[in-house]
Amino acid sequence: MSEPQSKTSPPSSGDTSSNPPQGEPDIQVLHLECPRHGVFEAYGRTAGAGMPIAQACPRCCDERYHDDETRRREARRQHAEQQMRSRRMREIVAAAEIPARFRDDSLENFNATNAGQRLVHGVCCAYAKTWPEQLQKGGGLLMTGQPGTGKTHLACAIAHAVMANHMSTVKYGTVSSLSRGIRATYGARSEKSESEAMADLVRPDLLIIDEVGAQSGSSHEMQLLFEVIDSRYRELKPTILISNLNAKQLEEFIGQRAMDRFSECGPVLAFDWASHRSSQEGMA
């Protein structure tokens, strides 16, 4: 004959999951109701007044756990995405090679005090605001005027805006620096060919060419400049040209073919006021 089961021994196979733990006479199966999932069973004690101790609905607990885990996964995803974006932004800014003097220039801190300045500032703001459209059609800008009138400030401000808001790639350079980069490929130890160096100037979403006409360029430099403008024109890549010459002088310098290509892509902005270099740092 089998021995009687003690009160402290594990439940026998005949016990059900709804049976309360043995040895606890004041523990019983409670039938509680969840507003969302209906009646559920739980172990609980009853107080003297017969009020059961509250128990959480297991399905609600399970849903909260999964909701919390989903939020944790989403937070981890957003954190990883932000880190990747920050890393990519640092790479884009470094590749742009914008001079340190113009790294803090923005559309917001441009000091527009007269009608002409407000006009060119408005055009540049509109250009940056409609960047996706400019990028699609290869829209450009031609900035002309004396040194110290804010041309480079606004060009670099546009560059900062399109990098920050659209993660677009930018390349800044003067005619002489870009020409030097291409000429450097002619050496026997160069790791790049001339065509690869030219491709580096066509690839960025936005190319800013500064100091056009600052010195008399050689026929080779003029040919390279035309090839860059023409290649970007054909590939619908936006370009900003900056020159101390007026529009007529600039056409004589870069040639009618290059001027025609460029004029088709965007307006000529005349910075026809006195230099503010002495009173506003960063204007050029």
Rank of each mutant, 00 (worst) to 15 (best):
E3I: 11
P4G: 02
Q5N: 02
Q5V: 09
S6P: 07
T8S: 14
S9A: 14
P10T: 15
P11H: 15
S13V: 11
G14F: 09
T16A: 10
T16C: 13
S17H: 04
S17Y: 12
N19G: 01
P20W: 08
Q22G: 09
D26C: 07
D26R: 05
I27H: 07
Q28T: 14
Q28E: 08
L30C: 07
H31M: 10
L32W: 01
H37W: 15
G38M: 14
G38C: 06
V39P: 14
F40I: 02
E41G: 10
A42T: 15
Y43T: 09
T46F: 06
A47H: 14
Q55H: 10
C57W: 13
C57F: 13
C61A: 14
C61D: 14
E63I: 15
Y65T: 11
D67S: 15
E69G: 09
T70G: 02
R73S: 11
E74G: 00
Q78L: 15
H79Y: 03
H79I: 00
H79E: 13
M89A: 01
I92D: 06
A96M: 03
I98L: 13
A100G: 04
R101V: 14
F110R: 09
A112K: 07
G116V: 06
G116C: 15
R118Q: 09
L119S: 15
L119E: 13
V120H: 06
V123W: 01
A126T: 00
A128L: 05
T130R: 03
Q136H: 09
L141T: 02
L142F: 10
G145C: 10
G148F: 00
K151D: 02
T152Q: 01
H153T: 00
L154N: 01
A155N: 03
C156P: 07
A159I: 03
K171A: 08
S176K: 14
S177R: 08
R180K: 13
T185M: 07
Y186K: 05
Y186A: 10
G187M: 15
R189T: 11
S190L: 04
E191Q: 11
K192R: 07
S193K: 00
S195D: 11
E196L: 06
D200I: 00
D200E: 10
D205Q: 01
L206T: 01
L207V: 05
I209F: 01
V212M: 05
G213A: 06
Q215F: 12
S216D: 02
S218T: 15
S219I: 12
M222L: 15
L225S: 01
I229Q: 08
D230N: 11
Y233E: 03
T239C: 02
T239L: 11
T239H: 03
L241E: 05
S243H: 01
N244Q: 11
K248N: 11
Q249T: 06
E251T: 09
G255I: 04
Q256D: 04
Q256T: 09
M259N: 06
S263G: 12
E264P: 05
P267I: 08
P267F: 01
V268W: 13
L269A: 08
L269H: 04
F271E: 08
W273C: 02
A274Q: 15
S275F: 04
H276C: 08
S279D: 12
Q280E: 14
Q280C: 09
